[in-house]
């Protein structure tokens, strides 16, 4: 009698291997999850260009601008007013540069790189509005995004 009771009490699944596996899966997803992808508007169709290469942008200050074919600026899925948004970002970039280098002057080129992700159907006149606004606010470094044809 007492023997059967003891065997019933010990009938517990060993959860340790399952927990190990789950932690391994969590570790995997933590490492591959990239929250920067949230800033990309994946509905845009980028142009395909042969010489476009993926560049290591680790440590580079980037400002990603998603521009749809009607020339609207989308930031994290929200439509923004182009002049006011870029002006605000230019101010933030200047203050950040000033903190790092006290001699940084308003005439100097801002260190932030503007990443232009525009739909391939976007007319140049609408794209030029964004580029010109960025230039007027002191941005000089640009990266034009495209899919690689290879």
């Amino acid at each position: 009698m007492s023997g059967s009771l003891a065997s019933a009490a010990s009938a517990e699944p060993n959860l340790t291997p399952m927990l190990d596996m789950v932690f391994q899966l969590i570790t995997f997803f933590m490492l591959v999850t990239n929250f920067k992808a949230a800033s990309l508007d994946l509905s845009l169709q980028l142009p395909v260009v042969g010489s476009a290469r993926s560049v290591d942008t680790e440590g580079v200050d980037l400002l990603i601008l998603n521009i749809d074919k009607s020339g609207k600026l989308n930031i994290y899925g929200i439509a923004r007013d182009i002049p006011s948004y870029i002006k605000g970002e230019a101010k933030a970039s200047f203050e950040s540069a000033k903190r790092e280098n006290s001699k940084f002057d308003k005439k100097d080129d801002l260190p932030t790189t503007i990443v232009v992700r525009a739909d391939k159907q976007t007319p140049f006149s609408l794209l030029n509005v964004v580029i010109k606004t960025c230039q007027d606010n002191g941005f000089r470094k640009f990266a034009l995004k495209a899919m690689n044809s290879e």
Partner: peptide, 20 residues
């Protein structure tokens, strides 16, 4: 993590210096 996992596309870029 499974629900928020969205593999980002491999995009290339052309770096330019665009003065006015």
């Amino acid at each position: 993590f499974i629900l928020t996992f969205k593999p980002s596309p491999v995009e290339g870029q052309i770096n330019l210096k665009l003065p006015p």
